[in-house]
Amino acid sequence: MSALGEFRSLSRSRSKAGSADHREKNRDNKAAAVFLAPWVIGLVGITLGPMIASLYLAFTDYNLLQDPQFTGLDNIRRMFSDERLAQSLKVTFTYVIVSVPLQLAVALGLALLLDRGIRGLPLYRSILYLPSLLGASVAIAVLWRLVFGTEGLVNAFLAIFGIEGPGWVSDPDTALGTIIILHVWTFGAPMVIFLAGLRQIPRELYEAAATDGASRPKQLFSITLPLLSPIIFFNLVLGLIGSFQSFTQAYIVSNGTGGPSDSTLFFSLYLYQEGFTSFRMGYASALAWLLLIIIGAFTALNFWASKYWVFYND
């Protein structure tokens, strides 16, 4: 009824004199421009401007203190013989490929558990979300270093079973693993999104399936997962983009070195070192664009692949 009323009033206003209509439209446009202004200024001044500046710098030799010198494709050529770049790509890809699916699996698993209507759900949800609020913070990264240290909590626990654990953070074989665990631990954000997604699935489907004798696992694979696939896709895209850019944890856990022995040299950490520690901001800008291209390619690949497994119920 109300929609019909709205339509009527709309058509009535449209039949009014053309000049008044025009003026109103003009005023709306102005208001829109005013409301958009903060965002546009931010976009141009803080994102777009520096991005274009960095595109220019990517083709220069720029040491931060002197004018950049245009060097053509030198920075790109340098990438092909840069062993630390190769190492940082290896670290970053390992991190993304392991930690993103793992985090989503944990988030989904917990969301499924919480969705079974247990009592005190808001409390559990908040507690489980807590790590996400803390995970990216400096304090937690420092704590992580202590928990996984030679004398840390993990080794104290292992000692109960007579196992003498290594210094997890200081051993090149395990350092990246501890950062992956730290990332997986911050499953809260995707979990909350999964929970919201699960609430959208009509209960009748489960009732109908149960009547037809479908077991719980069968319901999970035939109803829950297909209907949740757009949400999984959304979390996957965000997770991938976020993990390619991760910086804070590695910076703090390794004291900014990417060590031990470059085993936690994340791409963005290497980029930071090149720009601010080695004064090669031109090369760092080129690296930033390489990262943008990699993330863009992965996201595009993701969208292309999504048509084979994401199911939109509309």
Partner: peptide
């Protein structure tokens, strides 16, 4: 205007010291 702003940014970035 946007392009102009960007040009200023680039110019600023290329502002050396000394």
């Amino acid at each position: 205007a946007g392009i102009a702003a960007v040009t200023v940014c680039v110019a600023l970035a290329s502002c050396g010291v000394g």
